[in-house]
Computed example of a mutant assay.
Amino acid sequence: MPMPADVNPNGDIFGGWLMAQVDMAGAVLPSRLARGRIATVAVNEFVFKQPVSVGDLVSFYARISRVGKTSITVQVQVYAERNPADLQVVKVTEASLTYVAIDADGKPRPVPRD
């Protein structure tokens, strides 16, 4: 849930705050699949569809769309629940990010296939 400290001068939540949350949510599945360290290597697409407001309950839904030799691409959809008295759920953002499995030295390593 975004807080007042996350607001931009327009009164909406900073896009950067939402991007950071998407990156964290998007990393969960690749880190499990890679069974270890990963790094974000690309934000392929990021679309802000609706503003996010203080008090919105924001939910992130991720799915893996591609697994390469060392990389994993994830699609993330973000929804906000607002106005509890007359509940509305709106899609606020969708994004595509690519992560790479890395070893202890930060070098790419193969994604396990078993």
Rank of each mutant, 00 (worst) to 15 (best):
S53P: 01
P112H: 13
T98A: 02
T70K: 01
Y61C: 00
V47Y: 01
Q75G: 02
A62P: 02
N8W: 11
Q21S: 10
D23V: 01
I38S: 07
S65E: 15
N8Q: 12
D6G: 02
A5S: 12
A42S: 06
K49F: 09
Q77K: 07
G55K: 01
V7R: 13
P110M: 07
P112G: 11
G16Y: 09
V43D: 11
I38Y: 08
V58E: 08
S96Q: 12
V58H: 10
P30R: 06
Q75N: 10
V78Y: 09
P84D: 08
Q21C: 04
G68D: 11
V43Y: 11
V92R: 07
R66E: 13
T98Q: 07
A20P: 00
N83V: 05
V78I: 06
L29H: 11
G55F: 05
G15D: 12
Q50N: 14
Q88P: 04
I64Q: 04
G16H: 09
V28K: 04
N83R: 12
D86Y: 07
L87C: 08
S65P: 00
M19K: 00
S96N: 07
F60L: 02
N8A: 13
G36F: 07
G11A: 14
D12G: 05
G55V: 07
V76Q: 00
P9C: 06
V100S: 06
G16W: 10
V90A: 09
I38G: 08
F46R: 00
V28S: 04
L57T: 15
V54N: 09
P51C: 06
A95L: 00
L97F: 08
W17R: 00
S71R: 09
V58F: 06
V58I: 10
P30E: 10
D56P: 03
P30Y: 09
V67P: 03
E81Y: 04
A20K: 02
S59H: 08
M19W: 04
V7Q: 15
G68M: 03
A101Q: 04
E81F: 05
L33F: 05
P51N: 09
F48A: 05
P112N: 14
R37T: 12
D86R: 14
G15K: 10
D56T: 04
L18I: 11
A5K: 08
K107Q: 15
L87E: 15
V43R: 03
N10M: 14
G16K: 06
A20Y: 01
D114Q: 10
A95Y: 05
D86P: 04
T70R: 01
L33M: 13
M19D: 05
M24A: 08
L29A: 11
P108Y: 06
I64L: 02
Y99N: 04
E81K: 10
D86E: 14
P110A: 05
T70H: 03
M3C: 02
G15S: 12
T70S: 12
D105P: 02
Y79N: 09
I38N: 09
D105C: 05
D103E: 09
